[in-house]
Amino acid sequence: MIPRKIQKQLLHLWAGYPVVTITGPRQSGKTTLARTTFPDLRYVSLESPDIRALAESDARAFLQAYPAPVILDEIQRVPQLLSYIQTMVDESGMNGQYLLTGSHQPQLSAGISQSLAGRTGLLRLLPLSIQELSDAGITLERDDYLYKGFMPRAYRNVLEPHTLYSDYFATYIDKDVRQIANLNNLSTFETFMKLLAGRCGQLLNLSSLANDIGVSSSTIKAWLSILEASFIIFRLPCYYENFGKRLLKSQKLYFTEIGLATWLLGIREPAQVARDPLFGGLFENMVVLEALKARCNAGKEPDLYFFRDSAGTEVDLLFRKASDQLIPTEIKGAMTWNKDFAANICKLRKLSPKFTSGFVVYSGDMTPISNDVKYINFKDAAQIVD
């Protein structure tokens, strides 16, 4: 197993809460993390039909058969257990009792807000980060990262990425989408996902997507909620504050697994990546997700935004380090250093003293500091949120 940065936070929360809940996309390593961190805990998978049947029919008998401390995997399959767990932990008054994992946010978030509020520590585990791979002695070239992606299975097995993500997509459609929503036409939903992959790093336009697919904007909105609920996509909000200009209140869209986006675009070998007209969006997606992973692995809220106003001033990523400190970052896929990469950051700093220093993340190896902007290689993108 490749060691996960989030493990430190897991141990910390386990000591301070009666329940810890790990959420995240399917196959991001939640079960492996739980079982390797706590190898002596009893493990129960609610994916098993007979075990799930007992939990659904007689929750008390289930919890007596599998007493705490225990790992309950895929807890969203039986969300009614959460109310009974609340009673158990309130009676025991002890920390470190139930370690829950789940892939579907709607059932978990509703159950947690109703039953486990104040009783559970929450962690979101995303696919592997470049930093985690590097610490494990695994270093790839830029286009190989974009092609292979960051799913743990991609580094544990010898499966080709196109096979891995084809199977992943089929499993997601069958097990997740069908459980969250009733879709009349799965092929239309698949087309929708392929169009989304082509919009990585772009402003989200519901009407445009609806017109391209031939469905209503409300349907697109519902489908996006499904993807976000199952951790397939991440929506980056626009930072809004009155800096004297009209700012665009919109969102940008990214995939939590760049390998899936690359596969959806029909890229079947690393040599195709840089030649693809959507390369810039894919590269930006990878860098933004590295920042998001670093925040999640530290057990913190993302505090990530982008900036764009009606005058055309735009910066790819903003990190709100403090209430009075916003760190801007521009993301460029090029391998050659160019001082003009920081032009928009310099413009942005004139709007408010809250915009401090900044970064340019690119594919090159030169790391100068120019106009108080630090240039870094994409493999060090986690520095953005340090």
Rank of each mutant, 00 (worst) to 15 (best):
W14Q: 12
Y17K: 15
V19E: 00
V20H: 09
T23H: 04
T23W: 06
R26T: 09
K30S: 03
T32G: 03
R35H: 01
T37A: 15
F62A: 04
G93L: 09
A110L: 06
S129G: 03
I138G: 09
E141W: 07
F150Q: 08
Y155V: 01
L159A: 13
E160R: 15
H162C: 12
F169I: 00
A170F: 07
Y172F: 12
K175Y: 08
K175W: 03
V177F: 01
V177S: 01
N182V: 04
N184H: 07
N185D: 02
S187R: 05
T191L: 01
M193V: 09
A197C: 10
G201P: 12
Q202G: 10
A210V: 05
G214L: 00
S216W: 03
S217T: 14
S218G: 02
W223M: 05
E228H: 13
I232F: 05
I232C: 08
I232V: 15
F234E: 02
R235Q: 14
P237H: 09
Y240W: 11
K252R: 14
L253M: 09
F255K: 04
L260H: 00
T262Y: 11
I267W: 10
I267Y: 13
A274H: 09
V288E: 10
L292E: 02
K293S: 06
F307Y: 15
D316V: 06
Q325N: 08
K332A: 12
F341G: 01
F341C: 04
A342C: 10
L348R: 13
G358L: 02
V360C: 14
Y362H: 13
G364Y: 13
M366E: 15
F378E: 05
I384F: 02
I384R: 06
